[in-house]
Amino acid sequence: MKILVCITHVPDTTSKVSFTDNNTKFDPTSVQYIIGPYDDYSLARAIELKEQHGGSVTVINVGEAETEPTIRKALAIGADDAIRINANPTDSFFVAQQIASVVKDGAYDLILMGRESIDYNGGQVHGMVGELVGMPSISPVMQLDIEGDTAKLAREIEGGKEQLEVKLPFIAGCQEPIAEWKIPNMRGIMMARKKPLDVREPTSDEQMTDTVRYELPPPKGEVKMFSADELDGLVQALKNEANVL
């Protein structure tokens, strides 16, 4: 089985985010980067499927040279090789185009990615790739098992789960609890240094969107405390100040 896993290079959720140039550019200073958490789930499941069925796992990232430590971590976790598209991933359609070009040429049986990245939270790329390459795209996938040329899936829907079957190849946007995150061991880290990383130039520069400016959420307000005998005051505060009633 030949599996392609798409990974993002995103700020750690504990990083303090700030912007420059009148809030038009993201400031990467002192920001720690990680594999996108949803991508971590898809990578972990890909490694498990490789162990069960044989084959190979390739990771792909659309990003510039600073993303390579993140790619090497994915290789240390167990991916066999990696592809980096040498471009700044500022637009979902642009990213989807780059992934689609690799999918078309790679004859992959399965393409996995996170349900969304945690920087832009668009949740669009898997659907776009599916449309560009003519494959089914299913998200968010919580369970994935392969039997022959058929995949059995559980997908989260409002109020429950949906059980699906689909023929390979297809694209899945993954989330927990599809697998448990894997932590690279020392042997994996050493082996990752020797695994191939193929750097390619983008196939196009077409983008559908442009970032005008960024805005931070408003700061949290002061906490108001109400005693047990002040329920009327609590209700009025929720209604008139918090606007939740």
Rank of each mutant, 00 (worst) to 15 (best):
K182M: 06
E162P: 02
G188F: 08
E156L: 14
E176K: 10
A192Q: 04
E180R: 02
M186C: 03
G188L: 11
A172F: 05
A179Q: 05
P169C: 09
I189R: 04
Q163N: 14
V166N: 05
I157G: 03
W181G: 11
E147I: 13
M186H: 07
I157P: 01
G173Y: 01
E147P: 00
E180C: 05
N185Q: 11
G188V: 11
E158A: 13
G159A: 11
G160C: 10
A154Y: 01
V166K: 02
Q163S: 13
M186A: 13
I157R: 05
A151Y: 07
A151S: 12
P169F: 08
R187S: 13
M191T: 11
R193F: 04
I157C: 05
V166M: 08
D149K: 12
P169Q: 09
E180T: 10
E176H: 05
G159Q: 04
R155W: 01
L153R: 02
E165T: 14
K182D: 00
F170C: 12
P177M: 10
E162W: 00
L168P: 04
C174I: 01
M190F: 12
M191W: 00
P177R: 03
E147K: 13
A192S: 15
W181V: 06
P184K: 07
K152Y: 15
R155F: 03
R193Q: 15
R155Y: 03
K161F: 15
M186E: 11
G188P: 04
A172Q: 00
G159L: 11
A154H: 06
E158T: 12
Q163F: 15
A179N: 06
